[in-house]
Amino acid sequence: MKALERVVVSVLKIPPPPQPPEGSPESLARFRPALPFYRYLQARWALGQFGGLVGLLVGFGFAATIPLGDWQWVLWIAESMGVVAYIGQLGFSLAALSLDYRMRWYMVSDRALRIREGIVFTHEQTMSFANIQNLEVQQGPLQRLLGIADVEVTSAGGGGRSSHGETGQRDLHRARFRGVDNAEHIRGLILERQRSFKDSGLGDTDDEQEARDLDAALIEAARGMVQAARALRA
C-alpha cells in the first residue's frame, strides 16, 4: 500500500510539503485537517456514489421501458458501459480520498498564512494578514457531528462565484482551512495576528501607520514639554 502510494505520488509529481511563508520562524504554526475530516470525506464520497448508483438504476428502468425494437441492444451496451465505468471509478476515487486528506498543509506565520491542497490540481495559496478582510468559521450538521469545522479567510475583491461549490473555477479571494478540529484556536490566532495591521488592507502603504504613530508620539512629547514649562512657572 505504501509502495503504491509512493508510485502514485511520483507519477502525479505531487510537490513536497510547502515552504513556510514569510515571517519569523518561531511564530510559525502548522495545522492539519483532523482525522474526522477523512470520515467526512468518505461520507460525502459514499453519498455521491449512492447518487450515481440511483442514476444507474433509473437508467436501467429507462432501457427496459423504451421500445426500440431491434435497436434495444444499443441501450443495453450504453448501460453496461455505465456500470463498468461506475465500478472502475469506485476504487480510484476511494483511494484518492486518502491522498486528498493527507496532502494538505496549513501554515500560519506572524505575517501570512499558506495553504496547500490538491493531488491532481495542486494549489498553494498565500495571503498576508495585512490583506485579510474577514474571517468565518463554517460548520455543517455532519461536520458538527464529527467535531470539525472550516475556517474561511477572505481578502478584498469580489467574485461572481462562491467557493462553496467543489467544481468550476474557484474564488481565489478565499482561503479555507478545511476540516480542522481546532477552528476556534486558528480563528483566535489569525484575529490576534491580524490586529497588528491597523489599516484597511486596501493598498495603504505600510509606513503610513508608522508616520501616524510618530505624529502621536510628537504630540505626546510636546504636551510633556508644556507640563514641564508650567511646573517651572509655578
Binding site: 505531487i14 495542486t122 494549489h123 498553494e124 495559496q125 498576508s128 478584498a156
Partner: peptide
C-alpha cells in the same frame, strides 16, 4: 504593493 494574494497552481501535465 497592490497585490492581495498569490497562488501557485499546477495540474499533472504542468508538473510533468
Amino acid at each position: 504593493r497592490r497585490i492581495q494574494d498569490i497562488h501557485l497552481s499546477s495540474n499533472v501535465l504542468e508538473r510533468w
